[in-house]
Amino acid sequence: MVTTEELKKVRIPKAKVLMNKKDRLAPGHRLCAGCTAGTIARCATLVTDIDDVCIFHATGCLEVATTVYPFTAWRVPWFHNAFENVAATASGAEAAYKVMVKKGKLKKVPDIIAFAGDGGTYDIGLQSLSGALERGHDFVYICYTNGAYMNTGIQRSGGTPMYAATTTSPAGKVIPGKIQWRKDLVAIAAAHKVQYVATASPAAHRDMMTKVRRALDVDGPAFLLIDMPCPRGWRFPEELSVQIAQQAIDSCYFPIYEVYDGKEYVLNPKSKAIANKPERKLPIEEYMKGQGRFRHLFRPEKRDDLIARFQEEVDKEWDYLLKLVNMSK
């Protein structure tokens, strides 16, 4: 059993070492240009041993775009079952690997990563995830959130930001996009008292990779929520993906932090810097105005009321997070 103190000390190899490793996700896949799902998948799998990792995948953009028969972009064992059940699928595989270890057919249970989008996690896959976390299977669940069902044409999910326009929460004449706030998936995962839960961002890639490695080193389930800017669904130029991810951190809409043992909240450098110097916090308007999904808040007339309302929610969540962090000290 890895202790929480040991987990905090887990580091990843230097960039030079990682760069010389063979990508587990090969180029030539069909993700959109600028899609950070590829960035996340490549980074996450790079911190695994190519011969000691198995990937399980929920239906969604990353799955569909990387495995169009008869091609696959994956250089590691990879299995897709359905949309809402990747946690259960990985549970079954993990149980099977355990038996193989018992019977001497396998040295150890490999690193298991389950990838799913926000739709496959916040919504339809929540039960499967909760069951697997509760049962304590040794695997890492990575939810990459692009805040909508992108694969099926940008429909809202429980992770879609308030006021974002999606095809099922359009910016209408009366209703300005999605009217609900996103659900707090990190708190839900942490409430299962698993040893490691964290958020991460492609704008802090080494931090993200370190978190994946920590999650994998846990003897049991671990959960990661990773922000995944989607140029197609969020309507921004594809070269700005990482910049948008950075703004999500800077505005505190997507702070990056860890939760150890379901109770110890730790901010990671980029978010910690803002906690230390609150004046560095980016107004949410700056984050929103660069994305077409919020365009109706700026044109034809600027909706300061709605932007203020959004800011209020961001502030509330951020303040609450800071409270949790301070309580953990």
Partner: peptide, 27 residues
Amino acid sequence: DTEFVCVESEHSAMSACVGASATGARV
């Protein structure tokens, strides 16, 4: 010697069976 996965639904039961069987296990 069986690993018994006492899942939270039948949907997950069959999903776990698929995941387990995909590794070559008898399920």
